[in-house]
Nucleic acid binder design. Structure first.
Length: 587
RNA sequence: CGGGGCGUAGCGCAGCCUGGUUAGCGUGCCUGCCUUGGGAGCAGGAGGUCGUAGGUUCGAAUCCUACCGCCCCGACCA
């Protein structure tokens, strides 16, 4: 491609609408343009990157035995009524009617449609297993689209669905996709982790998220320094640590104090209560009021801990939990915020497991300006449910090997679920087994946010000058800067190099614009092309061209005659290395 | 939906509080000269329903009301 012919509008200034770096750079580098909130046009450069991701995804999905198909984006309501999701799915599902007043939605995902295909086409165990996928634009009417391509309302997604004869077979399909995903992100040249994840509203028994590591990630991950364990903090199991903390309160009869009410005027925060009563926050029981599907629930965690809402949601088996606002607490429970405690509390009470190991604890007295000391779980109050409810912290130990943990941020680019028979049962997707008996298919579903991968790649790989595309995702592998536009021979040399590289199978952009050198250098950096070859003075004087790698700025001179073959070989080797290596990068 | 911010030239912004003749700056764009290894310089030029609608006023970008749109924080997710 010739730069002079390409729609590649770069900008020096940061657009006011963009907050995160990938959004800013995608706009500045002329990759995308916003149509309206959450909807973007991919300009040629951005589309080229998207297609790179798609191609890798497609190749690996095919390699792991999945077949590509393409389903409609518009889906009829009756399918969603069958699965029960027409009612369950919230306003994220964009619903509308056609001219006959029939109900439809824009597909945010395709479990219903694919299950419909499966039940029509597959009738025998001989036809299974099957894994079908598509790469398609999805629509979700997000509450708040943001961060450009990171969370749009329209986004390109690869969604795959597996159908198996049994639970064990489904586990294999799941593992197969786990492997495929590892290859995919490996080949994209991204640093990532597969982590255990909450299976969320899609349901199902277990799931993993694939996270691109980047400071701006919306998710927090916990990674074991010693073993393979890695999980989303929403999921990460907290293990009760030292044996001393595990002693049941009943074993300590001699040390049990009585429950005593003390005045703590104005002491609402844990730290202030701790200071005032000369105890550590670890001795305080923190009582948080949540609305669980709109019912107030008191949640207990130790004073120095934080509630993990997703764990709470799972323990309570509700769809939604939300920390209640102070005035809501008063309106709904008549309990005094800052002085709430478990003893005699009139609403549903649940506790983190750690709470039950505490003795002589301090808690709110449910009376303004008062706390209780000498509080004993089990004696003074009994929660209706106890479980792992708190957010894991860096000081915790690995639940598998007790090793040290590290917390880090990540961007979710892939999510795989074992669905089980949720959809196949609801929609009667069955087959006949060897005995001719009817059996329900066991399903899995596997998503990759293709357009999000583009944003994540930039979040992970950029510097102050612009994007640094990993070679496999780069819209062009090489950019040639012709800095001798006035010199016919230099132009001819740049042109020939351009032709030679293309002949060698290299994707190359020739900057043949009538611009000053400074502009060409800046634009080349901004759009993040991995290899830059400059044809200019050095060529005129010494017959050499300058090769510069974007990620480390390393510069070497190449003899003009060898330039194209050298570069082609470098690129081939680099891609080959990513292609053939096994497992995750930076393991 | 709750909280905060913003809509003035393609982009980034000033002007608004305290209303007043022709709405300004930077950048980008066009023309010419000059320049050519990290976004040069000079000269000339084009480009605006000041988000929309209503109101107050002799007079509104500026004050008031409503609406629309966009961005950020929270709940949600590929």
């Amino acid at each position: 491609m010739r730069y002079s012919q390409m729609l590649l509008p770069t900008a020096k200034e940061v657009p006011a609408e963009a907050e995160v770096i990938s959004h800013q750079l995608l706009l500045r580098a002329g990759c995308i343009r916003k149509l309206t909130s959450g909807l973007y046009t991919y300009l040629p450069l951005g589309l080229a990157v998207l297609k790179k991701v798609e191609a890798i995804v497609r190749e690996e999905m095919n390699r792991f035995g999945a077949q590509e198909l393409l389903m409609p984006m518009v889906q009829p309501a009756d399918l969603w009524e069958e699965s029960g999701r027409w009612l369950k799915y919230g306003p994220e599902l964009l619903r509308f009617q056609d001219r006959h007043n029939r109900d439809y939605c824009l597909g945010p995902t395709h479990e219903e449609v694919i299950t419909d295909i499966a039940r029509r086409e597959f009738h025998s165990y001989r036809q299974l297993p099957v894994n079908l996928y598509q790469i398609q634009t999805k629509f979700r009417d997000e509450i708040r689209p943001r961060f450009g391509l990171m969370r749009g309302r329209e986004f390109v997604m690869k969604d795959a669905y597996s159908f198996d004869v049994s639970d064990e077979a489904a586990n294999q399909s799941y593992q197969n996709m786990h492997n495929a995903y590892t290859h995919i992100f490996q080949r994209c040249g991204l640093e990532f982790r597969a982590v255990e994840a909450d299976s969320g509203s899609i349901g199902g028994s277990f799931s993993h998220e694939f996270m691109v590591l980047a400071d701006t990630g919306e998710d927090t991950l916990v990674i074991c320094q010693e073993c393979e364990y890695a999980a989303n903090v929403e999921k990460a199991k907290v293990v009760l640590a030292a044996a001393s903390e595990k002693i049941a309160p009943t074993d300590l009869h001699d040390d049990l104090h009585d429950c005593v009410k003390v005045e703590t005027p104005g002491m609402k925060k844990v730290e202030r209560v701790a200071d005032f009563l000369k105890v550590s926050p670890q001795q305080i029981i923190k009582t948080m009021i949540y609305l669980a599907d709109d019912e107030p629930v008191a949640v207990l965690v130790r004073g120095d801990r934080e509630v993990q809402p997703v764990k709470l949601k799972n323990l309570l088996h509700v769809n939604e939990v939300e920390l209640a606002e102070d005035d809501t607490v008063w309106k709904r429970t008549k309990l005094p915020v800052g002085y709430i405690g478990p003893v005699g509390i009139p609403i549903k009470l649940v506790a983190d497991q750690e709470i039950m190991t505490m003795t002589n604890a301090v808690a709110g007295a449910n009376e303004k300006g008062h706390h209780l000391t000498g509080v004993h779980p089990g004696r003074d109050f009994t929660p209706v449910a106890v479980g792992d409810l708190r957010q894991i912290a860096e000081q915790d130990r690995c639940p598998v090997c007790q090793g040290a943990l590290e917390l880090t941020e990540g961007i979710e680019v892939g999510h795989i679920f074992k669905l089980g028979t949720n959809y196949s049962e609801a929609m009667h997707a069955v087959y006949q087994d060897k005995e001719g008996k009817e059996q329900t298919m066991v399903m899995g579903c596997y998503g990759i946010g293709v357009s999000r991968v583009v944003a994540a790649a930039i979040e992970q790989n950029h510097d102050k000058n612009g994007i640094i595309f990993p070679l496999p995702l780069a819209p062009f592998q090489v950019i040639i800067l012709n800095l001798g536009m006035k010199n016919k021979e230099t132009c001819a040399a740049a042109e020939k190099l351009y032709q030679d590289l293309q002949a060698a199978g290299v994707e190359v952009l020739l900057d043949d614009r009538d611009e000053r050198p400074g502009s060409k250098f800046k634009d080349a950096d901004l759009i993040g092309i991995p290899y830059r070859v400059t044809v200019g003075k050095t060529w005129e004087k010494e017959g050499k061209v300058e090769l510069r790698t974007r990620h480390d700025g390393a510069t070497t001179l190449l003899a003009y005659e060898q330039a194209s073959s050298t570069l082609a070989a470098m690129i081939r080797d680099e891609l080959q290395a990513l292609n053939s290596s096994n497992g995750q990068k930076e393991e």
